[in-house]
Computed example of a mutant assay.
Amino acid sequence: MAIVRDLIKLEMEKQSAHSEVKATYSVLTTEDGTCLQIDTYGSITRELLGKKSQSIRLTKEALSQLVQIINENKLI
């Protein structure tokens, strides 16, 4: 699992296709404060179907940055 406190912009030179997966989210209170956790689950071709694949926790600081990025880039 990863805890993200800061988002750093990276310009990607090459973009690759990604498969769709299911995702869930939870709001947690931890020693780091309140966090948003996003869990993804393997694609339908995965050997262990439905098994959690990745977890990422965003702190309040990282979430604030994400909101700013969304707003600045008019993503919604």
Rank of each mutant, 00 (worst) to 15 (best):
E13N: 14
K60E: 13
V21P: 01
N71F: 04
L48Y: 12
I56L: 07
L48F: 12
Q15R: 13
S26H: 13
K9Q: 11
R57C: 10
Q68S: 10
C35I: 06
L7N: 05
C35Y: 03
E11F: 06
L66H: 06
L58N: 00
Y41L: 02
I38L: 13
A2E: 14
L58M: 09
R57I: 05
I70F: 02
D6S: 04
I70Y: 01
Q65S: 09
Y25N: 08
V27S: 03
E11T: 09
T30D: 01
L48A: 12
T29P: 06
K22L: 11
L10K: 12
D39W: 01
S55V: 02
Q68A: 09
E61A: 15
S43H: 10
A2G: 09
S43N: 15
L75R: 08
G50D: 01
G33K: 07
C35S: 05
V4F: 01
E31C: 08
I56T: 03
Q54L: 11
K51A: 15
T29S: 07
Q65W: 04
Q68N: 08
T59G: 00
K9M: 11
A17S: 14
V21Y: 07
K52P: 01
V21A: 09
S53F: 01
N73E: 11
L63H: 02
C35L: 12
L7M: 05
K60T: 10
E20T: 06
L10M: 14
T30A: 03
R5S: 14
